[in-house]
Write a protein that binds this DNA or RNA. Sequence first.
DNA 1: TATAAATATCTATATATATTGATATGACTA
DNA 2: TAGTCATATCAATATATATAGATATTTATA
Lengths: 95, 95
Amino acid sequence: MTNELTKLIQASEMLKAIAHPIRLAIVQLLENDKRMSVTAIHEALNIEQAVASHHLSILKNKGVLSVDREGKHCFYFLKHQRLAEIVVCVNKCQE
Amino acid sequence: MTNELTKLIQASEMLKAIAHPIRLAIVQLLENDKRMSVTAIHEALNIEQAVASHHLSILKNKGVLSVDREGKHCFYFLKHQRLAEIVVCVNKCQE
DNA sequence: TATAAATATCTATATATATTGATATGACTA
DNA sequence: TAGTCATATCAATATATATAGATATTTATA
């Protein structure tokens, strides 16, 4: 497999991770260096805890988010702040 | 359904359209206001004609590309030039 | 160590997307 | 109008992702 193809696949995996309504909302929530716990996110978005946790783990596994545990809480944040730009950009392109 | 949710769904549909290796390659190919026919695209990417046509129609249906027919040729181009930024951005975030 | 709070995982079903090869449609041109 | 070039669609199978509910794991604290 060519290097170029590998890059395309990796980039599309990351985009695919973001390309879901709940996960897009999570990325939006974490703009501007915000750090939020699973509980804070599930309450902010009004979704089940298990649902939030599930989507957060997808975003983490695909390199979109990172996590720091502090006691009982897990604080998630954008691994690359730049990724928030994608959300802004795609929102601007909705005619 | 709330207006906010509708926006999230639309934005994620558009991102989902781009989140595929071949379709990402197509968007990259069409940066800088380029216009390319189906044949030119399938040759440039070294994929079957039917495959190119299929992915182009997905991108068109999800609002990523537009098309102009000129005789036998269909020229595809980015509907919003801004969308190329997404590709640049996600590429920069591959560590 | 028993309990509670926070988070993650599992199971099952439903739904969507990808892939491939074959074929159909549309539009010029000899 | 028959042929051919360009593009689109179809059909079938495989693979992946989503959704929801139940339950397990981890950590702190009484």
